[in-house]
């Protein structure tokens, strides 16, 4: 089974327990305004150009047969209309300022690459994580990869928004879900993520009923969901769902803004939380649930 991935990150320390490798798949039906991997939203390949790494050497201009790159007043201009995503400019860029995001790979090939770091997983009680993008948007590929990993005895995490309603079908091969819970208000959820909240909650319920376990990962975005009632709703959700082992509050970071620029998109920038705000929101959660909660 072939899937589309962007990269495999080795030595991943924040996507589940221990030392892990994380497979980032390409394509996500959600359009979260703060997405930290905007290059993984589109399911097709995309050309990324990082202007801050570009030294205006002009190799890309000479290489591209379709006139995709030019420099105007020293500024790197990318014309994506004629880009055929051949990747030649990426190959010729001396400064890693150009990246072609997206590669087709067999699940078995991914497994082979993941197994390289098996000694590190074993010694640290780590394993592998499938993230993205939305892994459930490539359900069959994700399932096969999880099955292959479990057959090798690897610890598996699935980082998902719960989209698509089929997360529970994978319980047998997922040791731990990293369940990204973004917003508890249905209207705001629809506005900020582009999809309905209810099917996601149903999916969580089904996973819970099927005996799955998860870390509930809650990005807290200033001006979007940094409200006491949202934090309270997170706590209440944890009280209702025994599958939730830990609540991870995830602070907003701006990584997505530069990456969105690199693919020619715009992403809104949000402010950062202060330490006082973080302390407060954590206390709102811990006041209402006995489930462990923490900032990561």
């Amino acid at each position: 089974m072939t899937g589309k991935i962007v990269r495999i990150q080795r030595f991943s320390t924040t996507n589940g327990p221990g030392l892990r490798s994380t497979v980032f798949v390409k394509g996500c039906p959600l359009t979260c305004h703060w997405c930290h991997n905007p290059e993984m939203q589109e399911s097709k390949k995309q050309l990324m150009v990082y202007p801050e790494q570009c030294k205006a050497c002009g190799f890309c201009v000479k290489t591209c047969e379709n006139g995709g790159h030019s420099f105007v007043d020293g500024k790197h201009i990318v014309d994506r209309t004629n880009c055929v995503l051949c990747g030649k400019c990426e190959q010729m860029c001396p400064h890693s300022a150009i990246e072609l995001a997206g590669q087709d790979v067999e699940a078995s090939e991914v497994l082979e690459r993941l197994l390289r770091d098996r000694p590190f997983y074993d010694s640290s009680k780590g394993g592998i994580t499938i993230s993205g993008g939305e892994p459930l948007a490539q359900f069959n590929f994700t399932k096969e990869l999880l099955q292959l990993c479990k057959a090798e005895g690897l610890h598996t995490c699935l980082d998902t928004s719960g989209w698509g309603g089929r997360a529970a079908e994978l319980v047998e091969w997922v040791d731990l879900y990293l369940w990204d819970f973004k917003e508890s208000d249905p209207e705001r959820h629809k506005y900020y993520t582009g999809v309905e909240l209810e099917p996601i909650l149903d999916s969580l319920q089904k996973m819970n009923d099927a005996g799955g376990k998860c870390l509930l990962r809650c990005p807290i975005i200033p001006g979007v969901n940094d409200r006491d009632e949202h934090l309270s709703a997170i706590a209440e959700l944890a009280n209702r769902m025994p599958c939730i082992q830990v609540i991870d509050l995830v602070p907003y970071h701006r990584l997505g803004v530069a990456k969105a620029d690199a693919i020619g998109m715009h992403q809104d920038e949000f402010s950062s939380l202060t330490q006082e705000e973080k302390d407060h929101f954590l206390s709102v959660v811990t006041a209402k649930t006995n489930t462990q909660a923490r900032w990561i």
Binding site: L19, P119, D122, S123, S124, K125, G126
Partner: peptide
Amino acid sequence: EMVVALVDTYFAL
């Protein structure tokens, strides 16, 4: 613990 695992594994290799 993660540093221990890292060093242990490198040394085991």
